[in-house]
Amino acid sequence: MKHRTGWILLGLAPFAIMVLAFQVAPILSMLMGSISKPGVPGFTLNHYDKIFHSAYYLQAIKNSLLIAVYSSLIGIIVGLFCAYSITRFTTKIRDRLLMLSNMTSNFAGVPLAFAYIILLGNNGVFTLLFKQWGWDVFADFNLYSWSGLVLIYVYFQVPLALLLLYPSFYGIQEQWKEAAALLGARPWQFWRTVGIPMLTPAIFGTLGILFANAMGAYATAYALVGGNYNLLAIRIGSLVAGDIVNQPEVGSALAVLLALSTLLAVYLNHRMSKRSQQFTASYASGSSSKRIRSRKQQWNATKEEVGT
């Protein structure tokens, strides 16, 4: 028995050390940093106070929240329609389309920002082309501003939304549509009263992931606008590693705020995915007995939702 415990400890020790050293310790250190007085012992909430009274930091937070909300909402709407569309194709074509969107979701960060600079930057191919053709509509568009950032953020949100959403469409069964049609419901009535409510947990769960994804995105914005656009992630980066090294504590406090927002969003996703799993379980499980059981679960879940 003793021999065995030795092996177990030996197996776990390196893992525990790595996690403690590179995950737990940094998070603790950041939390401590955000409430410590620079240079002297003791705790203070001054850094948070400073952030919430500084127009500059508040603007960074606001910009980040806005861009995360906008890009997530656009992403989820486009994603919803495309996810529904994708489930209409045959399995073979569907898998190809999914592979392509999966591939483009790898195309993020610096290379993505760069691709957009080539296409729509100051000397971008399309920018020059539109100028030559005299399309003034695009003359006001500036890639290095708010609209450009939203455009790029939407680009990496759409494939993610699509990949996360499409499985839940299989939870909506063809028979239900037929039943609804037989009872005289039009397609939009079916979607409004049955389809969308069924998808709601999946939609909110995906929104959580998209929001966290946009809040934490750094590389794309950094490569596109450098330190020029006031975003929370960029502000943190420059406070800690950049030119203004004199306020690492404020950087820590901002980082804690950012982490709080993303943790909350991921938690939302966790709660919601539990719910939507009950909906889509019938698709995932192959055997009929399981299907019957999970239908029952679906029924219970729906009841629960109606009840609350």
């Binding site: 750094y218 690492p248 980082a255 982490a259």
Partner: peptide
């Protein structure tokens, strides 16, 4: 819970903690 943390904590935040430590 432990392995979901790296997902939920953005890279910038992790970098702040690591640099401090």
């Amino acid at each position: 819970g432990l392995v979901v943390l790296p997902y939920a904590v953005p890279g910038v935040v992790a970098a702040v903690g690591l640099i401090r430590t």
